[in-house]
Amino acid sequence: MSEPKSRSVILIVAALVLSGLLAFAGSQQGWSVGPFAGFAIAVAAAFIVQWVAFVPAAMTQTDRYFDLTGSLTYIAVTVLLLALSPERDARSIILTVLVVVWAVRLGSFLFMRNLRSGGDDRFEEIKASKLRFFSVWSVQGLWVSLTAAAAWIAITSAHSAPLGWTTFIGIAVWVIGFGIEVTADLQKSRFKAEPANSGRFIRSGLWSVVRHPNYLGEILLWIGVLIVAAPVLQGWQWVALLSPVFVIVLLTRVSGIPLLEAKAERKWGDDPEYRAYRARTPALVPGLRGK
């Protein structure tokens, strides 16, 4: 077996093992449907959706619906959990709304961007190999499960708590993060739509404050979800803390900022204006000097 295929097998096994551990921990002190814990159902459903969508994607060798499938998974699984919940309390409804609104907005944005660009160049080599392509879809199942963990664990928790000040703080943090993400995406889309900006980098609006304001918004909104979920978390259910931690690590150390910074360096690394912009503008947190 070639090295890329060996790595793919390792990724698939790792995604399944980590998801299994997450499902076990997050299911403690949660409600069940027959012999199946609610949160475990959610994690399993997240993977099943990816694997079903993988079949036509692999047959046609297209990644066009990859991001859309991820977003639809958030929506479908979260709504399913709310429908299965023996008690649909206000907290569960709020969490469902927060996740669904985010997923609808981001999913439609990424899908339209994908249609305009013709696809994601990260998949060009991968989708030719069914095993490697399958590993990517499996990892997306883990990504969805980890990111949504705080909301899903709270919705499936057997413990309840009245809404309090933490709930409203969480909603406020989510609203701020969502607003930043939407505004940043809109500003960049308008910038790229201007013919005069072809080949140039954006440094206006929120992009003049930090180099990745959309990621800042993404991190804040998932922190907000955790704050809303926190009052009903018990014992092992605190594995939900992995939700915003995972988002932060993913965006700052794995597939977010590092990839975009490397791409920008290749494209504008010799541009004095870009060097100056990078030097004066922090990557993610306002007020911190950029490297």
Results as ranks from 00 to 15, higher is better:
Gly30Gln: 06
Trp31Ile: 03
Trp31Tyr: 08
Val33Ser: 12
Val33Arg: 09
Gly34Lys: 05
Pro35Ser: 09
Phe36Glu: 11
Ala37Val: 11
Phe39Leu: 04
Phe39Asp: 05
Ala40Leu: 10
Ala40Ile: 09
Ile41Ala: 11
Ala42Met: 04
Ala42Gln: 05
Val43Gly: 05
Ala44Pro: 08
Ala45Ile: 05
Ala45Asn: 10
Ala46Leu: 08
Phe47Leu: 02
Val49Arg: 07
Gln50Tyr: 03
Val52Arg: 10
Pro56Gly: 12
Ala58Asn: 13
Ala58His: 04
Met59Ala: 13
Gln61Asp: 11
Thr62Ile: 09
Asp63Pro: 01
Asp63Gln: 01
Arg64Lys: 15
Arg64Thr: 15
Arg64His: 14
Tyr65Glu: 01
Tyr65Lys: 09
Leu68Lys: 10
Thr69Asp: 02
Gly70Thr: 05
Gly70His: 09
Leu72Lys: 05
Thr73Ser: 13
Thr73Gln: 01
Tyr74Thr: 01
Ile75Val: 12
Ala76Asp: 06
Val77Cys: 08
Val77Gly: 07
Thr78Trp: 01
Val79Leu: 15
Val79Met: 11
Leu80Tyr: 13
Leu82Tyr: 10
Leu82Thr: 12
Ala83Gly: 10
Glu87Gly: 14
Glu87Ser: 15
Ser92Met: 13
Ser92Thr: 11
Ile94Pro: 00
Val97Arg: 08
Val99Thr: 07
Val99Gly: 05
Val101Phe: 10
Trp102Pro: 02
Ala103Gln: 07
Ala103Leu: 14
Ala103Pro: 14
Val104Met: 11
Val104Arg: 01
Leu106Thr: 06
Leu106Lys: 02
Arg113Val: 05
Arg113Asp: 12
Leu115Val: 14
Arg116Glu: 15
Arg116Gly: 04
Arg116Cys: 01
Arg116Val: 07
Ser117Asn: 12
Gly119Lys: 04
Asp120Tyr: 11
Asp120Gln: 11
Asp121Asn: 15
Asp121Ser: 15
Arg122Trp: 13
Phe123Val: 12
Glu124Ser: 15
Glu125Thr: 15
Ile126His: 03
Lys127Trp: 04
Lys127Leu: 12
Ser129Arg: 03
Ser129Leu: 01
Lys130Asn: 10
Phe133Leu: 02
Phe134Ile: 00
Phe134Gly: 02
Ser135Phe: 03
Ser135His: 04
Val136Pro: 03
Trp137Glu: 08
Ser138Glu: 10
Val139Pro: 11
Val139Glu: 13
Gly141Asn: 09
Gly141Ser: 10
Leu142Arg: 00
Trp143Gln: 02
Ser145Ile: 03
Ser145Arg: 05
Leu146Thr: 00
Leu146Val: 08
Leu146Gln: 01
